[in-house]
Design a protein around this nucleic acid. Structure first.
Length: 454
RNA sequence: GUGAUUGUAGCUCAGCUGGUUAGAGCGCCGGAUUGUGGUUCCGGAGGUCGCCGGUUCGAAACCGGUCUUUCACCCCA
């Protein structure tokens, strides 16, 4: 049998794990600096918790778990005959792998509302699963690193999250990221102005192609989708939507005068932009992007998405937004939440491509005892014991060398693993130790060995 | 879900328009030499050429299907 792993999953080598941990630890430390506390939730949830929260497309991408036992027994004969997959699926699968961390978190908040002090700031770093077709930067199993706050409607949270993004990417030395921001209320305002709420998605999709197909192309596409000329005229400032954030905001404010909701969205966004401008960002830039719609249909206010530095071609490496009523679905009304997510696997790929992992070192032993004879085993093992008790990573090569060649193999092992000190001979409680980086060698006692190595 | 793309030894790949027992480098194992640093030399193991079917006197190569890889679209982290 040929060994293999499922599509869209990966094994991680020791080096990769070390590099990933470096990112995990940076994110984790920053989350805690900002006052978030960790929680964890199960890998799988009841299907009813997840289904219907991510739109039609999302539901399709949820991995369903087959019921145990004779699961076909309960299914109507007729349903099976008709081969209606959706209807049958809900009968034979009652659990599903989590698709993101936000919805399980909402469930958690409602379920544990009596134990929680609001506003509740939690972070969560766990894998999620999507039955997507894999490609560059897209996997079927990947990690999300989420931070959310529930129980506060303050726009200061939005500001906090922009800073949090900037802090993490700066610590990772990932310079040049763009934090794109939009507001769902602005999108609703635009929909109101063009007089067609159901055309909003067509509208933003077309608008997003502006730099690819130009203004005329976008207008043609919008007309083709049934958006009227008057409507397009009303939002025409969007077609020349460059300039600074405040210029964009002024244009939006002007355009959305007639829409109460739209105006509110502009005000919210303006507050966040102004505050951030006062505070300043280290390495990221904040940019208003009205084409940012995001598929997750639970967002109601701010929307975030982070783009990698321009020289790397990669989908978004982070995203998030405000949701006013996510917990409402689970029966807890009037709790506003906002959160962001870091896509660890994509951040990893971007950092790899930019060569930012040079400083990350692998955990490896510092001292290796070669094993050329078993005569002084107990002395060697005791020495290793004392080294380890001083937190010096040490090990004994397990197999005794029976030939020159095998001795050579042990030296090679030391070289390949980049081990700093090699003890090749133990005699009368004296250790022959070689400093592999210097190429020097001398005999010493155990105490001296510990001292040189420390 | 749509459209491409890939598949030969543990790894990276050769294998010309179908023609004998399918190769190389690296790695692995054993040995010799080098006093304990990546040397050199000798030997060895390891492949149903992704899988199934077809065309042919003959298929790793051509055709069909299937799985797999990678990528783009959609969507997203």
């Amino acid at each position: 049998m040929k060994p293999s792993i499922p599509k869209g999953t990966r094994d991680f080598s020791p080096t990769e794990v070390a590099q990933r941990n470096y990112i995990f630890n940076t994110i984790k430390a920053t989350f805690e600096t900002y006052g978030f506390q960790p929680i964890e939730t199960p890998s799988f949830e009841n299907s009813s918790t997840l289904m219907g929260k991510y739109g039609e497309e999302g539901d399709r991408l949820i991995f369903k778990i087959l019921n145990s036992g004779d699961y076909l027994k309960k299914v109507d004969e007729q349903l099976l005959q008709e081969k209606k997959s959706n209807a049958v699926t809900s009968k034979i699968s009652e659990k599903a792998l989590r698709y993101d961390l936000t919805v399980p978190f909402a469930r958690y908040v409602v379920q544990h509302q009596n134990e929680i002090t609001f506003p509740f700031k939690r972070y969560q770093i766990q894998p999620v699963w999507r039955a997507d077709r894999p490609q560059k930067g897209r996997f079927r199993e990947f990690y999300q690193c989420d931070a959310d706050v529930v129980g506060s409607t303050s726009l200061l949270q939005e500001v906090d999250f922009v800073q949090l993004y900037d802090a993490v990417f700066s610590k990772l030395n990932l310079v040049g990221t763009t934090i794109k921001m939009n507001n769902r209320k602005i999108l609703s305002g635009i929909a109101e102005v063009i007089g067609a709420k159901e055309k909003l998605i067509d509208f933003t999709v077309a608008l997003d192609k502006l730099d690819k197909i130009g203004k005329d192309g976008v207008v043609t596409e919008m007309l083709g989708k049934g958006i009227t000329e008057e409507a397009i005229e009303k939002v025409s400032p969007l077609f020349s939507f460059t300039g600074s954030n405040s210029e964009k905001l002024d244009a939006l404010a002007n355009m959305l005068q007639a829409s109460e909701e739209g105006t509110k969205g502009v005000e919210e966004l303006r507050f966040v932009c102004n505050t951030i401008q006062e505070l300043g960002l280290q390495s990221a830039s904040l940019e208003i992007d009205v084409t940012l719609a995001r598929g997750l249909n639970y967002y109601t206010g701010a929307i975030f998405e982070v783009a990698a530095p321009k020289e790397v071609k990669m989908g978004s490496i982070g995203g998030g937004g405000r949701y006013d009523d996510l917990t409402g679905i689970f029966g807890l009304k009037d709790v506003s939440g906002i959160g962001i997510s870091f896509g660890l696997d994509r951040i990893y790929l971007v950092m790899e491509e930019l060569g930012l992992f040079k400083t990350v070192s692998l955990p490896k032993p510092k001292v290796l005892f070669l094993n050329f004879d078993s005569e002084n085993d107990s002395i060697k093992l005791k020495a290793i014991q004392s080294l380890r008790s001083k937190n010096i990573k040490s090990e004994l090569y397990p197999d005794v060398a029976k030939s020159n060649n095998q001795q050579k193999k042990q030296w090679k092992y030391a070289i390949n693993r980049g081990i700093e000190f090699v003890v090749s001979k133990v005699e009368d409680n004296q250790f022959l130790v070689k400093d592999m980086t210097q190429g020097t060698q001398n005999t010493c006692s155990l105490d001296e060995l510990i001292n040189t190595v420390q």
